[in-house]
Write a protein that binds this DNA or RNA. Sequence first.
DNA 1: TTGACATATGCTTATATAGGAATATATTTA
DNA 2: TAAATATATTCCTATATAAGCATATGTCAA
Lengths: 122, 122
Amino acid sequence: MARAATTADVFNAIAEPRRRQVIGVLADGREYAVGEVVLRMRMSQPAVSKHLGVLRKVGVVSVIRRGQHRMYRLNAAKLRPVHDWVKTFERYWTHQIGQIKERAERNALERMVSSNTIKKED
Amino acid sequence: MARAATTADVFNAIAEPRRRQVIGVLADGREYAVGEVVLRMRMSQPAVSKHLGVLRKVGVVSVIRRGQHRMYRLNAAKLRPVHDWVKTFERYWTHQIGQIKERAERNALERMVSSNTIKKED
DNA sequence: TTGACATATGCTTATATAGGAATATATTTA
DNA sequence: TAAATATATTCCTATATAAGCATATGTCAA
């Protein structure tokens, strides 16, 4: 089995740095024509178009046509699964780091006691 | 240029669902032997070993050898770049959604005015 | 209609998977 | 030493890039 497609889900889509950069351009919530994105990034027009295409397929951006332009807009809500998933680890670096470390070590000891490494003492 | 390696950075490493699942097992901060992870997931031992290998290369997990076991532990701090990046979009779904939408539309209108679509009226 | 402009798409190439199966490499125990 | 146990590694294959280049498609303007 090969790697999942970049369009498989948001996690895969944002794995590419250039794509996060594109998202960064749209981050102010305004809509941008492809050409405007190209100007703000050091990338070719086809490359930008393709990245926008991936982001569109996963719903992270939406498009509407206006004249000869295609206006792209960020649909930040689609980033929420990433946010929610990684947020569950917030506690590991938000203050009480010491406490958490301690608890982990205490638990580790607990497990050692019931591990086969020490089964001799049974 | 091909897709970046899964070991290129955290974003690529966590793109794989199975890998997030492995992280989920280690999420309590305790250390786990490979076999324990295998038991908690419906995956072969080699598969788990490989995923752990990727996570180790990007520093998301650390290993220590204890007897014939390899104890893996989550190093959640490495997930922080993901957290920090996606956190900047929190405002889009945390309350005031209406306001933000409004602002975006107002800006969109502003841009329309100076766009060539309406240049006729010049 | 013709040309200028904006954007998407097709093609090519090098590279990297993820998982299964088999096997190698410890390490412990009898 | 041999068997058992735990984990890593190798080989295999189908699949999917990302970027550059050329080109197709669509739209506006004169």
